[in-house]
Amino acid sequence: MNIFRLAGDMTHLFSVLVLLLKIHTIKSCAGVSLKTQELYALVFAARYLDIFTNYISLYNTVMKLIFLGSSFSIVWYMRYHKIVRRSYDKDQDTFRHYFLILPCLLLALLINEKFTFKEVMWTFSLYLEAVAILPQLVLLQRTRNIDNLTGQYVFLLGAYRALYILNWVYRYFTEPHFVHWITWVSGLVQTLLYADFFYYYFQSWKNNQKLHLPA
């Protein structure tokens, strides 16, 4: 475990906490894409199939449980909580997220490191995570007033991805035989999707203005 990896995991954790804080205390999910949250729940379910069979460390297991638990509870809140679900921007959140799932599954069946069920599901989760933010980015673009917590949530998610890339660079130079093309390419694609958001996030921060993404 290097500092970039730990910082990446912590930013990921904070992003989830920020979102849960917004939903749990303000009882609002305005500006949050349920489509993206459902994709993340699917991503973690597919990726952590080995949670009880492949023990890596206590840290690893606890983090997996947190990401699984938080992603499914966020989906539950947005769909079924009687107050929270009223604030969901259903009419704005129209991205056809189902159309992302099938291509990712096909790609995982075609391009993987090993053709086993667990390995294909793991690869599928990487491809799906790479594009899972898209519905959220589209929703942000449509939202007139992006509140601070939603902006911070997306910023932290992007920061987590950027830190993971630094982690891979570090591991490449410090660990022999550390080559993972599938992880790297899908991770890079995922991070690039945040480039536009980052630009406007820093602009609004620099000019001390409210965040607003041009259509």
Partner: peptide, 10 residues
């Protein structure tokens, strides 16, 4: 050599 299916990242 580390095994390829040892996914130690989250």
């Amino acid at each position: 050599v580390e095994s390829d299916d040892d996914h130690d990242e989250l």
